[in-house]
């Protein structure tokens, strides 16, 4: 028995220290989030993030270059042929309707961030567990005449799904997390008035403690849908020889 007493003592002490540390971590996190993150680890992640961002930038540049070359060939041919030219113009129109081009215009930028954690919070993000709020907000924006919408860089198209996948909210299957930056192109005044209506979605968000920031802007940019849009099941219904 005696030979175990030391171990038990050490065990108890360890437990106590563990408790103290965890209480300490909890209280510190509330007032200063990130304050206890080991600096080296954060720096490592920061470096990794920079690296993948640079990789993405390089890939994007390559894509722009290729698309430019492609456009050159098409435009050169289109100059010789007016039918080709009209096809090119039509292509542009439907690409825009499909969300396959980057767009700019007047609009609104809404930033949503989680409420500060209090003694009742369970450690989960309010905005992520209530992701249907994003769904409703997108719907309201469209109702207010928004012509293009993005959330954290993800272009919202008809087939976009917003879903809780594990610890993340996936938008267009890409993981996202708060703070959420929602951009919408349209009439800034109409959009603002629609969402800030009394008892409306923004008021409800604020009541739940969500930090809301709304900025109207003369010009904002919204990225294109990043994936490849291809239908496998939906086939066009061909009307008999439409010319």
């Amino acid at each position: 028995m005696k030979k175990y007493s030391g171990i038990i003592m050490v065990g108890l002490l360890a437990l106590l220290i563990g408790l103290i540390v965890s209480v300490q971590v909890n209280t510190t996190q509330g007032s200063d989030p990130g304050g206890l993150i080991p600096l080296a680890k954060a720096q490592g992640l920061e470096a990794e993030l920079k690296k993948v961002r640079a990789e993405k930038e390089a890939a994007t540049q390559r894509l722009i270059e290729l698309e430019g070359l492609m456009e050159d060939i098409q435009k050169k041919k289109a100059e010789e042929d007016s039918t080709l030219k009209s096809i090119l113009n039509e292509q542009e129109k439907y690409k825009m309707a499909a969300g396959l081009v980057e767009v700019k215009g007047s609009g609104i930028i809404i930033t949503l961030d989680d409420p500060e954690p209090d003694e009742f919070s369970d450690g989960y993000s309010y905005l992520m567990t209530n992701y249907e709020l994003l769904l409703n907000l997108v719907n309201k924006l469209k109702d207010a005449g928004a012509e293009a919408i993005s959330i954290n860089g993800q272009r919202i198209i008809a087939t976009t799904e917003i879903s809780l996948a594990g610890d993340n909210v996936n938008i267009n299957t890409i993981p996202t997390a708060p703070p959420y930056q929602i951009k919408a192109i349209g009439n800034p005044d109409t959009i603002e008035a629609t969402i800030t209506i009394r008892y409306g979605i923004i008021e409800n968000l604020k009541k739940s403690g969500v930090h809301v920031d709304i900025v109207k802007q003369g010009e904002i940019n919204i990225p294109r849908y990043n994936g490849i849009l291809k239908f496998r099941y939906a086939q066009p219904i061909v009307e008999e020889e439409k010319e």
Binding site: L49, T60, D167, A177, G227, I228
Partner: peptide
């Protein structure tokens, strides 16, 4: 720490999408 993890994962998936489009183009 979590924000980093999500941001890195998000960028990685975007790169995969862009690479797919590069190949197609």
């Amino acid at each position: 720490m979590d924000e980093y993890r999500v941001a890195i994962e998000s960028e990685k998936q975007s790169i995969l999408q862009i690479e797919e489009r590069i190949l197609e183009t």
